[in-house]
Design a protein around this nucleic acid. Structure first.
Lengths: 229, 229
DNA sequence: GCTCTGATTTAACGGTGTTCAGGGAACTAA
DNA sequence: TTAGTTCCCTGAACACCGTTAAATCAGAGC
């Protein structure tokens, strides 16, 4: 009795076609300018049909963003495992930058488009990013423990700095704000190197962390607005 | 014949009341959740009346944001003029952070709220921010010329790093993502110091700038989406 | 064949930003 | 004072939006 399986498969296919259409439209026209009706028209269904697959427009975005965070997570993780702790820090953040090149559509949805709904605690994608940033902080801690970074370096604050700085070149590249002769890769590398060099110099950090990386970094990272969408 | 003057004054007062109501509503409920009808109700006018003062909802935001950029500009400028070039760099960026504390409503509209319309070239506020960031780059150049920073430091890239990193603590503070015991001021200072220390160490920068600061930084800074609002 | 289930559509609700013809008050000129 | 003009403002409408309830329809199971 493969009927249910076939039905499930078909349903999954429709669901995926909604996501594909939405990703295309979101990245070409911006989340704000895409309506449920446009997505429905693209997949040749009625607008109401979509609501049997997703609770609402925001949920379509959240499903896409969750995929994106998963992709980012696996990309960063596969870049680790080689070299010293400091090498891993460098590799991890470089993977983040490369992700913005390889998956520009996802990256844009995740970090650039400002009309997108808010990312809140409890949502799966939030937890993935959360864990990723916590890992990044722990990586910095290992580099400190290994003596590759001065003991004065606060891993949490350092992670914030790396994060904030690395988003810049990624967005610059994505928005094509660099001239043809300018190489975003070099800029990204410079930014990364500058930060790490600064950390190596070991300026004492006065910030007093708590479990600041347990709920802090994501908010600043993605630029979460204070209000509900 | 002060009639026209009085009429102009009244008109200006109504215009200002629209802006005041809009700023209150935007920052308490988020740009996305505020409708023209709500603003109209607040000032006891009909929704249509607003369109004789502003071309649309987005223009109300743009007028507010322009005020904000002007405020930021004057705050940063008044912080300059004392000390060495490197001191000025530090003072300027610290003023930026302080602005986020003193004018949280404006700062939120300018940099945090993600449902706000895009900032585009040609708009007055864009030019103000543009000039401000160009000034920041020139300040870094002066610090290099004065020997306070190594010649290898690329002012444009360095400006990007400072900018990206400083937004982080500001947003963290604004979104109250720090525990009571954690001091955002210290975090901001650490971030600023870390970056400057890194620059002083003089890691060679490979990025090849053009007039990259003539049209680049703003986009990455504010997180401008690719699409029209 | 019939029934039942569940995916899909039709039609509508309440909201949005925005436009436009007209009313009416205030000002000007005779 | 009165007639004319100007211009702000309103009411009503338009074209959308996200979302939902009821009707419809195809297909599976008996």
């Amino acid at each position: 009795m493969g009927i249910k399986e076939r039905q499930d498969r078909e349903r999954q296919a429709v669901r995926q076609s909604i996501l594909d259409a939405a990703r295309d439209l979101f990245t070409s026209e911006g989340y704000r300018n895409v309506s449920i009706r446009k997505i429905a028209e693209r997949i040749e269904y009625s607008p109401a049909a979509i609501y049997s697959y997703f609770a609402g427009k925001d949920d379509i975005y959240l499903a896409l963003a969750e995929d994106g965070f998963r992709l980012l997570d696996s990309k960063v993780k596969s870049a680790l495992g080689h070299g010293s702790p400091l090498d891993e820090v460098r590799a991890g953040w470089w993977a983040f930058y490369e992700f913005s090149k390889e998956q520009p559509a996802y990256f844009e949805l995740m970090f650039v488009d400002r009309s997108v709904p808010a990312i809140t605690e409890g949502w799966e994608g939030f937890e993935i990013l959360q864990a990723l940033l916590t890992n990044a902080t722990e990586g910095l801690q290992r580099a400190v423990d290994a003596g590759e970074l001065p003991p004065a370096v606060n891993p949490c604050a350092a992670m914030h700095v790396l994060w904030g700085a690395l988003v810049g070149p990624s967005v610059l590249r994505l928005c094509q704000r660099l001239a043809p002769g300018e190489d975003a890769d070099l800029l990204a590398r410079d930014v990364l190197d500058s930060i790490l060099t600064g950390l190596e110099s070991g300026h004492p950090l006065t910030f007093h962390p708590r479990e600041c990386c347990a709920d802090g970094p994501v908010a600043s990272a993605v630029g979460v607005p204070v209000h509900e969408p």
